[in-house]
Nucleic acid binder design. Structure first.
Lengths: 144, 144
DNA sequence: TTGGGTGCAAATGTTTTGCAGCGAT
DNA sequence: ATCGCTGCAAAACATTTGCACCCAA
């Protein structure tokens, strides 16, 4: 009964696309929209995101750098983070998914979703230096 | 070669204890210390935490409410969150642990750690109301 | 004397809200 | 007219840093 959202459909399209990044910060979404010629406000993106999460269409992803990222719920995946070079990869969550049933049995919970982040050293870094002090992700780390 | 930390040992003791909460926010740590008669500053707690994480003794835990929590690395566990009543439980991470090897094989990563949060409905809530709209965790949610 | 630990205040960065105006229904 | 969507500014929060001082080695 009121003005339909001008930006929400565009945001949905971004999250549904299979392009990088696979999980978007609010600021990344705003910039991506701007590149499409749609200049909007951070607050508007924020409110669209909250609504989308409430409606179950988006899923928040916390990677530990202080910024909340969002992904299309249907594209849910786990994350692989290289502590050495900061690379962040999306991996299918088949493995974690395979635990749902057992986890439900063991805990009595009815499980709706999960979020999982693996941290370690990527193949490239493993090859370069046989071993090095892992840089734990902090809020100032550059992810994505 | 300088003054030994007055609070770090106390903080370590808190995290090593098996009492609630199982994962502490900086503010919770400060308050717990205060209850022990040790009044300190938030910044000092923060710096102790950063150092402890750098040294690998503490592990940051992100639950999605905007606050970073910390647990003793040796006590690592996964989390179960009831979207209906907000209960947060710690569960052994044996199941997730069992995936390490396969995940390493499939990705070529050398995995050092993981973090996992299961979200769903706890047995009590499942019993009470057969079904209800799940309240997605937001930053304003009261966890722990 | 030195160098890390501590407290206090201020800066940063991100998230959240208040409010006025807009516009499709 | 109504009611949700927007933009702008400010507030609210959590994290982080600068700086002066303290104190055991």
């Amino acid at each position: 009964m009121a003005r339909p959202s001008q930006i929400r459909p565009q945001l949905d399209a971004l999250l549904r696309s299979h392009h990088e990044p696979h999980a978007w910060t609010l600021e990344e979404l705003r910039q991506a929209l701007a590149r499409l010629g749609i200049h909007s406000n951070f607050s508007s993106i924020f409110r669209s995101a909250r609504q989308a999460v409430d409606q179950g269409q988006w899923q928040p992803v916390m990677l530990g750098d202080g910024k909340t990222r969002f992904e299309w719920s249907g594209h849910h995946h786990d994350h692989l983070f290289c502590q050495s070079c900061g690379t962040l990869e999306a991996v299918p969550c088949k493995l974690a998914q395979s635990l749902h049933h057992r986890m439900e049995q063991q805990t009595g919970y009815r499980i709706h979703s999960h979020s999982m982040v693996w941290e370690g050293t990527c193949p490239r870094c493993v090859r370069k230096r046989s071993c090095r002090k892992p840089a734990l992700p902090t809020h100032k780390t550059d992810l994505c």
